[in-house]
Design a protein around this nucleic acid. Sequence first.
DNA 1: GACCAATCTGCACGAATTGCAGATTCGCAG
DNA 2: CTGCGAATCTGCAATTCGTGCAGATTGGTC
Lengths: 165, 165
Amino acid sequence: MRNPAELTSAFRARGLKVTPQRQLLFRLLHGNTAHPSAEALFALAHAEMPGISLRTVYQTLTDLAAMGELDSLSLGGATRFDPNTDPHHHAQCSRCGALHDVYVEQLDCLEVRGLDGFTPNGATIVFSGLCAACTTLTHTPVGAEAEGHARVEQFSTPTPKEQSP
Amino acid sequence: MRNPAELTSAFRARGLKVTPQRQLLFRLLHGNTAHPSAEALFALAHAEMPGISLRTVYQTLTDLAAMGELDSLSLGGATRFDPNTDPHHHAQCSRCGALHDVYVEQLDCLEVRGLDGFTPNGATIVFSGLCAACTTLTHTPVGAEAEGHARVEQFSTPTPKEQSP
DNA sequence: GACCAATCTGCACGAATTGCAGATTCGCAG
DNA sequence: CTGCGAATCTGCAATTCGTGCAGATTGGTC
């Protein structure tokens, strides 16, 4: 999403008002890579503005999402919001639930079967596994696979079996 | 998931009992490609067995999922269940919400950046767009892209922009 | 046929949102 | 700077989707 100043203009341009509550939320969201839930964001906001209402946080998040300044992610549990609106995907730690942005390339090399008639318009990829912190906590420390690229090996897709007898 | 008879054995083998309610649900789920929610399945079950409880449907779905006979999908709204446990992915109609199974191949050609330290263990892909029915309803009838393969063109991933000023 | 654990059903409870209504406040016009 | 009306804010009720519980039943083995 854009920075607080730009959002201020964008809101006014839409006839929406810019309140202290919204400015605070703009600031808390901008550059936030934690993919907070409404409750989590409320906790942050409440620390700085004790009077703010959870309802207001929900409202503002909804507004921002409607303006395309925020992506919302429904991954089970509370909806999480992502100020990063560049085309990207996510990796979620199955142990601690943390979400990380990942950038997937060569998407057009995928072969998709079974769409018959379905007109795709976008795709969302969510990797699940263990985040760096949980990996070291759970197993013996890992060292390889440092920076740069990584490939997804498993999960090739075999021919579908018949399902109804 | 396996057929009702096999599930019956599997349940008994686990010390779980096979009740009429469960048998009905086994039957309603087997070969079901509608990806029903608990409520939807309950509606089907209730039609045949008016006394069945929604609580029992939830319970049985949970059991089946725990046994790996069912995949559960959290895509916003109610959790939906998929008796197809082959490795596959989904396409969801953004208009009517219908879910379809799709088979994605060449997954290992994807390049993923930004994992730093995250150890992926699986990936879930959800295509969104319009299903065949909604496509014809919304636009002028489409004809091409009949059977076989299809490629996802859009949504290549550019270099991530910096986000914090 | 009996017995005991596993179930079933109905209901209360909990989490995550959304709907409402009255009190406030932003932002433009004078 | 003041006024006004629409947009907001806040608190609370209401909803949706599940889960926890407890008492009445029932499956499956001896």
